[in-house]
C-alpha cells in the first residue's frame, strides 16, 4: 500500500516537472553590418565630428531580393523545427505603426495621452533573444558564380555565438545565383541547427546563461561597501549579494566579472529553467530571478528599496536606492 502510494506521488511530481515549458527564445534573422554597408544599405551621420555609419535594415529588406529569398528560406526551415522566426521587416513596420497610433491615442473622458518615458521609447526596437546574423555574397570567377555564406547565431544578451555555419559553395556556370543561394542555405542549416540543439541541451542541463548588473541610484547614501550583520557575520553588501548569487544559481555557476563600490557586473550567470510557485513548476526568466534578489534585499537587516529593470529574456539590472 505504502509502495503504491509512493509511486503515485513520484509520478505526480514527474508530471508536474515535465509538463512545464521553459520560456522559448525568440529568433530573428538580421543582415550583418558588413552585408548592409558593403551593399550600400547604410545611414551615415556626424556624431560630434566623428563619422558614424550604421546599417539601414529597412533599405536592405526593401531593396535586396536575394536577402529576402535567403530570409524566406531560413524562416521555412526554422518554422519546421518549431521556431517560427520573428520577421525583421514586419517588426520594423509594426513598431512604426504602433508609434503613430500611440501618439494620437487619448482617453475618452480627460483626453489624457499614453504615458511614455524616454526608456519606454528606447525599448521599442526590433529585438529577439537569438539573432541569426547573415552575410552572403555571390562572387564571380570567370564565367562561373559561387556563393560565400556566413551564418552566426548570437545570443542577444551574452553576445556569445551559440551556433555558426559558413563556407564557400561550389562554382557553377549554369546555375542561377538564386539557386546557388538556396543551395548555400540548405547546405549549412543542418550544422547550424545541430549546434543550436547542443546549446539548448546545455541550457536545460546547466541553466540559462544570463547577465545581471547591480547599480546604485545617484545620491543614495548606501554603497556596495556598506557593512551589514547578516547570517552571523559582518560582510559588505557586495559580498552578501555575491553569496546570494552563489546560493541561487545552478551549481553556483556565475562570474563576478567586474565591480566597484557602485556596481557589480555578473556574467555567465546560470539561472534555473524553472521555479516552484504554489506547488507548481513555472518557467524562470532573468526578471523573476533578479526579483528574488530584490525581495531578499528588501528584508531585514538591509531594508533596501530597489528598481528592477529588465532587458529582454536574458539580462536584468537591479538599481539600489529607489523604485
Amino acid at each position: 500500500m505504502k509502495k503504491s502510494f509512493l509511486t503515485i506521488i513520484t509520478l505526480f511530481a514527474v508530471m508536474l516537472v515535465f509538463g512545464q515549458h521553459a520560456k522559448k527564445p525568440t529568433i530573428m534573422v538580421v543582415p550583418s553590418d558588413h552585408f548592409c554597408i558593403s551593399h550600400g544599405y547604410k545611414l551615415t551621420f556626424d556624431n560630434q565630428g566623428t563619422k558614424v555609419v550604421l546599417p539601414d535594415y529597412k533599405a536592405a529588406l526593401q531593396g535586396d531580393g536575394s536577402l529576402r529569398l535567403v530570409i524566406s528560406k531560413l524562416s521555412g526551415i526554422m518554422a519546421e523545427r518549431g521556431f517560427p522566426l520573428k520577421d525583421l521587416e514586419q517588426e520594423l513596420k509594426s513598431i512604426a505603426q504602433a508609434s503613430a497610433e500611440r501618439s494620437v491615442m487619448t482617453s475618452k473622458e480627460s483626453g489624457a495621452s499614453i504615458v511614455e518615458s524616454p526608456i519606454d521609447m528606447l525599448k521599442r526596437t526590433a529585438k529577439s533573444d537569438i539573432i541569426m546574423d547573415i552575410d552572403f555574397e555571390v562572387k564571380k570567377r570567370g564565367p562561373q558564380s559561387y556563393v560565400v555564406f556566413t551564418l552566426n547565431g548570437l545570443d542577444a544578451y551574452t553576445s556569445k555565438s551559440v551556433a555558426s555555419a559558413s563556407g564557400t559553395g561550389r562554382p557553377s556556370s549554369a546555375a542561377a545565383p538564386e539557386l546557388l543561394l538556396e543551395e548555400a542555405v540548405l547546405s549549412h542549416m543542418d550544422k547550424f541547427n545541430g549546434m543550436l540543439m547542443t546549446h539548448f541541451k546545455d541550457m536545460f542541463t546547466n541553466g540559462r546563461e544570463v547577465k545581471v548588473e547591480i547599480n546604485l541610484f545617484e545620491g543614495f547614501l548606501v554603497d556596495l561597501e556598506e557593512e551589514y550583520d547578516y547570517d552571523g557575520e559582518t560582510s559588505e553588501l557586495g559580498d552578501i549579494i555575491d553569496d546570494w548569487m552563489a546560493d541561487n544559481t545552478v551549481e553556483g555557476r556565475y562570474s563576478n566579472s567586474d565591480n566597484t563600490e557602485n556596481f557589480i557586473k555578473f556574467e555567465q550567470v546560470r539561472i534555473p529553467m524553472f521555479y516552484d510557485r504554489k506547488g507548481k513548476q513555472r518557467a524562470m526568466d532573468t526578471k523573476k530571478f533578479v526579483n528574488n534578489l530584490r525581495k531578499f534585499l528588501a528584508r531585514d537587516p538591509f531594508n533596501l528599496t530597489c528598481k528592477l529593470y529588465q532587458r529582454g529574456l536574458g539580462e536584468a539590472w537591479l538599481i539600489i536606492g529607489e523604485k
Binding site: 559553395g169 550544422k191 541547427n193 545541430g194 540543439m197 541541451k201
Partner: peptide, 14 residues
C-alpha cells in the same frame, strides 16, 4: 562530416 557541397550534418539522435 562536411563534404561535397554540404557542411557537417549532426546525427538525428544526439
Amino acid at each position: 562530416s562536411a563534404g561535397g557541397d554540404s557542411d557537417k550534418i549532426f546525427p538525428i539522435v544526439s
